[in-house]
Design a binder for these strands. Structure first.
Lengths: 258, 258
DNA sequence: TCCACTTTTTACCTGTCTTTAACATTCGCT
DNA sequence: AGCGAATGTTAAAGACAGGTAAAAAGTGGA
């Protein structure tokens, strides 16, 4: 993905379409946290680090923008009220910083449940909004979710594999030339497995990745969806060649050899 | 709905890719539960056991820390209010116990929805927070999720050794160019031994590492699996060069020299 | 509201895997 | 060589994982 320069900046793009910052790759695991309450800051840092991110903390907005330009974090977590200019201002600055940072995902963090704040935050272009108190699980889940959402355009938008064409942006599945309709869950599942073709996932891992957070679903649901997908994509659903069962482990997507 | 509130019938603990045993190994399936309400305690125990965990219950915090140091559970579920010092204190002690236990995941359990408690709990370093009443499914799902998050995200690389290729991510075994199908247990066994090539393991050590903890299996089962593997990977199963028997001790994996 | 559709659970069925136990063989020792 | 212990081998019973279908539960629109 070494594309150097995409021709046009966000000019005619719909605002919400997260455009991958092509020119300079961000650091996929670095997260900036701007939060003045040191307890919360430590807490957040700890859990993000446990989840495998590298964290840089700030207690004011001072210097954040400059550092961000240099270090290109993957995401910013901003307390909506911090000394030295509040998070909303910072968010706005980031969004206006042009191509360099404009697309970076921003998540607000706040004790307030106030609708007004919430709306202001989202209007400035935040990607999500977490109100304190939050569980670490929720925090990490949402950070992951936002990153996942923003990652999609980075990955090739269309996965082509042995007669399948999975267009994630358009959510269109084409099987050997024919467009096949799928439900949202079916599509996400297929997309996820195909994206990591060759790797085995347990049902639990699949639930984590494909199902929405906060739902607690029996692992056997995965089986049901695999079956539905097989009916749609396999030449002979009795002898699946794309969606392989790995007995005792889970499922694996394979591109069948000719 | 005859089965009232069962979780998933004992079945579904997917054969998790048993990862390399890290320096200090906790007991991957043992959970401590500290809860004074015996009804809830029994309920929790029951559902965790159904999900394949071994549970040790306490009705006060007394002795918990000492036991934890000895038994190294994989996770602790603490009621936030228990007699004999509350769960938050215990959590803090655990977190301050240094390397030994400091990283152990802790999940709070509470009837309170009080914001204050919630924040206090999370600030002491809990990993999640479940408020009563909770559904058994949620309980199990969250415990699993926390454990999964804390697992070492070690990327098992492909092990290549004298004509064998053991790809743990894909769960594919290739022997001198040919893909060989294996059962999950066969694969885990081979993977484990190959990962620690050159070292002898007793049957009991192998059972501990490769079999799931909750089952009690005769050590001779190992012999049977070694035989199956030999049939699949050895050039001459009569004179094994990969899976060597160490009489009186156990087995050892070796990469045969050309 | 009803209807159509998606999601999720549940139960049953089948083929495969696991485990044990019995018997055979080999090894190390005296 | 002979003995006992450790390991190899085999087969069979039972457990279990996964496929499947159908019901139940949830959703959204007309």
């Amino acid at each position: 993905m070494g594309a150097l320069n995409r021709t046009f900046p966000g000019a005619d793009r719909p605002a919400q379409e997260k455009q991958a910052p092509e020119p300079v790759m961000n650091d996929k695991s670095k997260i900036f946290v701007v939060e003045d309450d040191t307890d919360i800051s430590r807490l957040v840092r700890h859990h993000l680090e446990m989840a495998g991110y590298r964290v840089r903390s700030y207690s004011t907005t001072h210097g954040v923008l400059a550092d961000a330009l240099k270090e290109r974090p993957a995401l910013m977590l901003l307390d909506i009220m911090v000394p030295g200019g509040d998070g909303i201002d910072l968010c706005r600055q980031v969004r206006q910083s042009g191509q360099a940072l404009g697309a970076i995902p921003i998540v607000f963090l706040t004790a307030k449940t106030s609708e007004a704040d919430r709306i202001r935050g989202l209007e400035t272009g935040a990607d999500d909004y977490i109100t304190k108190p939050f569980s670490p699980r929720e925090l990490v889940a949402r950070v992951k979710a936002v990153l996942r959402r923003c990652e999609a355009p980075l990955a090739p938008t269309v996965i082509r594999s042995g007669g399948l064409e999975i267009d994630a942006l358009a959510m269109i599945l084409t099987v050997r030339g024919a467009v096949i309709t799928t439900t949202a869950t079916e599509f996400r599942l297929l997309h996820y497995l195909a994206q990591h073709a060759g790797r085995v996932f347990t049902r639990d891992q699949i639930l984590d990745a494909v199902w929405r957070e906060t739902t607690f679903v029996s692992p056997r649901s995965v089986d049901v969806y695999v079956r539905k997908l097989r009916a749609k994509i396999e030449i002979d659903p009795e002898h699946p060649r794309y969606l392989r069962t790995v007995r005792g482990a889970g499922y694996r997507f394979e591109a069948p050899k000719k």
